[in-house]
């Protein structure tokens, strides 16, 4: 448990730093500004993302594709819940706002899943080449 909390906090710190710095850079380039509510929501979303990704061990028996879909649904539900709670304090979200939330959540997730699949395929290809090399060397050594 101690190890889990340690790794969770480390990942949270890293991801929040990257996102807040990237946000600040985008704001500087676009000439826009953020507010305190956005900063708090960004921190909550980072918490949700790190938590959902850190429980991947519980889906060990499932295929990676099933795991990705389950984690997507979980993260989407938690983020929606967080926004609904936020509306109690900061006013309602417009339909366009919900659509933007869904789009900005889904697109990076699909890109991430595609990158994961590409890495998996690339690793398998490299391992296949290594295997062939090892097998050929053994065959030539035994002759």
């Amino acid at each position: 448990m101690k190890e889990f909390i340690k790794s969770y906090l480390l990942e949270l710190c890293c991801s929040y730093t990257i996102i807040s710095v990237a946000g600040a850079v985008i704001n500087m380039i676009m000439g826009t500004q953020t507010n305190n509510a956005n900063v708090v929501m960004m921190f909550i979303f980072c918490n949700i993302a790190v938590f959902v990704l850190s429980i991947h061990k519980f889906f060990e028996k499932l295929s990676p594709l099933a795991m990705i879909i389950i984690q997507y649904v979980m993260a989407l539900a938690l983020c929606t819940g967080a926004i609904l709670i936020a509306t109690l304090f900061w006013g309602p979200v417009t339909p366009r706002g919900w659509f933007e939330f869904f789009r900005s959540f889904t697109i990076p997730y699909i890109i991430g899943a595609a990158l994961y699949y590409y890495r998996l395929w690339d690793d398998a290809k490299k391992q296949q080449e290594m295997l062939k090399e090892i097998q050929e060397r053994k065959e030539s050594g035994s002759h």
């Binding site: 295929s63 990705i68 998996l120």
Partner: peptide
């Protein structure tokens, strides 16, 4: 036994 492996391939469900 790695010497008996013919192929290593990821499946559509992302399992290798």
């Amino acid at each position: 036994n790695i010497y008996k492996i013919k192929q290593l391939k990821p499946d559509i469900n992302m399992k290798v």
